[in-house]
Each structure stands twice: as structure tokens, then as C-alpha cells.
Design a protein around this nucleic acid. Sequence first.
DNA 1: CTGAAAGCGCTTACAG
DNA 2: CTGAAAGCGCTTACAG
Lengths: 328, 328
Amino acid sequence: MSDRQARKQAVTQADVARHAGVSGAVVSYVVHGGPRPVAAETALRVRASIEALGYRPNASAAALRTGSSKLLGLVVPDIGNTLWADLTVAAGRCAADRGYDLITASSEGSATIERQHLQSLAGRQVEGLLVTVVDMVDPDVAGITGTGIPTVLLNVFSDAPGVSSIGVDARRGAADGVTHLLGHGYRDVGLIIHPDETVELREQGWEQALGSRGPIERGPSTRQGGYEAALRLFGRPDRPRSVFVSSDMQAIGCLRALWELGLRVPEDVAVVSFDGAADSAFTTPPLTVVRQPVGLMARQAVDLVLDGGPARRIVEPATLTVRKSCGC
Amino acid sequence: MSDRQARKQAVTQADVARHAGVSGAVVSYVVHGGPRPVAAETALRVRASIEALGYRPNASAAALRTGSSKLLGLVVPDIGNTLWADLTVAAGRCAADRGYDLITASSEGSATIERQHLQSLAGRQVEGLLVTVVDMVDPDVAGITGTGIPTVLLNVFSDAPGVSSIGVDARRGAADGVTHLLGHGYRDVGLIIHPDETVELREQGWEQALGSRGPIERGPSTRQGGYEAALRLFGRPDRPRSVFVSSDMQAIGCLRALWELGLRVPEDVAVVSFDGAADSAFTTPPLTVVRQPVGLMARQAVDLVLDGGPARRIVEPATLTVRKSCGC
DNA sequence: CTGAAAGCGCTTACAG
DNA sequence: CTGAAAGCGCTTACAG
């Protein structure tokens, strides 16, 4: 067993240089293909030494020297929400395409944890920050902009200077979903949505399309939250014949509640939800959804933070994807 | 707008030192509470300067100096698989508890990408590596051990020196699941499992409990893969009355296929699956599962890589969680 | 085409 | 209790 393996000491540039009989600079030149030219024969020798020694440049040292960490940060409230899981996958892929690694942090629904992660990521000199905020009503903009790192918000539009936003027109998307239900002839459309009592775009879209307010039940954007909200909504005597659910996670919980209640979808209750994450196509029955294009949003977000330029606000359409739960 | 904000230049220790009228060493002492004592009054002044300037220590510099990156790496085949999403969340939480950040990389089912991520993580000097390998039959152990970083495998047991493994007794878990189905009186139990034709523990457990081999359909461990496999399995004339599915993802696809086929669960077909991720409790009907304790596994894995010590092999029980899909 | 040297921002013996 | 200085492993002008 070689010395380096025995000690678990990393091989450094200096080790390679010594082994190849060149200076550290030359090693760096061949690793990066520049900025100075290297004689073909020398390069060959260096590459052989790199291979033989198993050299991998120390990313911390490179980051310190160049000021570029090749790191992107992503903060989501909950990776257990498949929409954010989808987003994480897409962002990771885009980052990798550009030679970046992604540090993903879950704030677990807590603004405090969110802020801690943001601070930590800033300390790691991430070169861009993608964040889906916990508190959509009053995002911790100070904690976000204070880092001075190019940032894009993915679930809320902010006017804060220097912060970009990418998202869908949620009000319109919700209105489209509700309108579709209305088109099936349902007069009443219930709503299951998260607990923020304040202005919420999806709620506005629902109300707007309905022309009035119907029965609402609130709960967290989780499967369990949707399950409990649906139990309340459909447990009452005047239960609605259809429901618009503000997230796939809640809709999945809702489907289970309806099943337990012995109500068939869509025969007894028609369901349309917001998000359109991967699993929404595999429920029983498959959910008709208003889809957020997270793959596209992730790519744009990565491009935005990495390509510099002024803060922007990008609105993508949320499009209705008709499956079975609406009764079509 | 202050100079530093205008330039987006990070505040350094030297800036704080100048502002507080002390040396850089003292700034470091108060940030870390040591290793040298600092006069209370001085510390107060330094903390005020840190606050005023918005100083955050450069993690790359600290990592370079101390040799400790405070970073853990996690490589999974697919974050879209809720089991791995659950694992990612749990590992992130455990890492955070110990002051570490987690870099999560998705190998997207490709051994090549897996190796690239491993190399990249090694270059970042992560202090521990948790990996669920793509190829369970012939994992890229060289690519894993070659990094010299404490590593734990989470979905396969390896004999490779210096590599720990944590996992469930998959054969026994599968056998328990099949036995449960047998206990309901079903004579035939089909199997839906991933395509590796070679020795697979879950397949062995199924065969062992059954005492023979029943109908098998293979496909990737995704919702779509399970959907297609189930369409084949239940499309044939001699379709089985029950099925053991080797992952929740496939089981979810299977449920959709059964629904499309007009077969009721559990009345027409009883289903038990392996994994027990968060969403398995919210299908229609809720899945009876053989559960992998990923939260526990994540904690043990983090402890193992961080606490040093020799490579270990930890086997956790996979326990049957009875819900509705089995007909109980 | 190649090498010697400075310096990125920290932490930590060491000296006072 | 505090400070001056070395050095972690790189990259990159600069000189040759």
C-alpha cells in the first residue's frame, strides 16, 4: 500500500510536479489547458503523473485563489414535495452542464432554518442562489439580498432590487383550472390551500373564476395536510361536487381522503390541482393539473445567476394538463 | 450604497480587524470562541464590527487552512424516487446537526455520471461520502474507494476494504412481504422488479417464500417502469391474484395500470411493495409495504463517516407495515 | 515553452 | 490577553 493511501493524505500539485519533474505552474497549465502553452511531450509526462498519483486539484484552494467556487446553492422548503424534488433534479443537471456543483438545503418550512442555510451558503461563496422561499407573503428578503450573491426566487415575485424572480402566473393558472371545472358544469368548486390567510394568488384566481367564494379548507402543502383538509371539506353536509387543490401534494392527500370517504373521483367529486409534478400522473385516477414548468424554470434560473446581467422577472405560463380526475 | 455592496466584494477578516482595531487572529478567536481567550470588551467590539460589516468567514479559506471542508457528499441514482428524496432530507438534517453541509448529486442511473460526481466531490474534499450505487450487482468500487474518503454504501453490501455498508436484509424483507400475501391465501404471487437479471436479494426472498418462481416482469425502478411492467403482467391470461413489487415507485405505477385495467386493489389483485417511502401511505389504496428505515440509516451513515473508526457493515430490519393494498 | 514567486483568506503555533 | 507570521494548495502575471 502506497504511502499516500496509508495516510489518506491527498495528492497535491506539488507531488505531481515533483513526480513529473516540472514546476507546479506547468501542472496547472495542463490540467486547465492554459493559460500558457505546454510542450506536447511535457504534457504527456504530466498527465501520466496525474494518473499514476491519482491527483485531483483541491477545489478549496482553487476557489480561494480564483474567487470562483463553482458552486451553486439551492434552498427549498421541502424536498419531500415532489415538485421541489423535480426542481432539484433539474437544477442539478443544469448546474452540472455548466461545470457547477449544487448544494441543496431544505429549510423544512422554517424561516429560521432558511436564513441559516442562506448564511452558510454565502460563506461557501456560492456563485448563485436559487431559492423557493418558505414565507411567500413576507419573504426574508434582507437575509437573501444581504449576501450580495446573484439570486433568483422561484416561487414568488419580489420587487427587491438585485433579486430576480422566475415563476408562473399563479392567479391565471388557478383561474384556468377552476374554469375547466366550471366547464364540466359544476356550480360549486371548493378550495384546498395552505394556511396563509393573506392575499394568495391561487386563491384569487379561484375566486375570480368562480365569481364568488366557495368552501375553503386550509392546511400545509403536504400529503397529510391535504388529507386532513379534504376530510374536513368533504365531511360537511354541503360538500362541493368539485375541488381545486393548490398543490399536488395536497391533492394526493385529498384523493386518499375521498377514497376513505367512499367518494369516487371524478364521478362524485372532480379534482384539479396546481403543480403537475412527476407523481401527479400516477395517482388514481391521474390528476388533471395546472402545470408549473420546473425544468424550464430551473434552466432559466441557472442561466440567470451565472450569466450576470441585471435582475429580471420572468413569467412562464402555467398550462392545464388534462388527465382523468376532472371528469374529462 | 457602501463600497463593498457596490463592488459585491466579500468582507474579509482583515476588514473586520481593521474596523475593530485588532488583529486578524483575534477576529478568528472570537468567531470560533478560541483557541485563545479574548477580553470580553474586545470581543464585544469585534462582534459589533462583524455585524456592522456583515462579515462571513470564507469557507474555502478555512477549509484550505484546516483541511476540513465541513462538507458531506451524497450520491443517489434519482432524487425523483421518493425513497432517495426521503434519504436526502434525512441526511441533510443529520449533516446540519453536526455543522456540515451536504452536496447532493444525482447520477441519473448512469455509472459514468456517478463516477464523475464522485470525482468532483472528492476534489471538493468532502469529509464523507454516502452513496447509493447505480449498479447494485457490480458497483464501481474502484471509483469509490479510490477517493480515500470515508464512504458508506446505502443500498448494497460490499466487501471492499475501507467501505462501510448500511442497509436492510432485503431478502428477508421480501420474503416477509410475500409470506404476508401467502397468508391471505393467494397461491400465486407475481413479481415486478428491476431488470438486472443476476442475483438479486429481493427476487431471492420472493422465490424463497414462494417455494418456486411465479410470473415476473422487469422494468426500471420508476413509476413509469412499474406501470409498463404491470400492464404486461396483468395483461396476460394467467394473471396472478397478487404481486410483490420491488419498489414503491414501481408499485405506484402498478396501481395506475391496475386501475386502467379495471382491476380493483385488493379485491382483484393484492399488492405489497418494498421501500415504504413517504408517498406509499397516500396511494389508493394505501400500500402495504416492507419498510426501509431511511431516516435511521441516514443518521447512522453520517455518524459512521464522521466518527472515523473502521469500516462497518450494519444491517437494519426491514419491517412490514400493513396498510390496505394487501387485503387486510 | 517553463519556472520562481506572490497572494487568495483563513487558523494557529509562537512570542510577547 | 494580543499580534506578527507562516503556510494550507492553488493560479497567474511576470521574467526568462
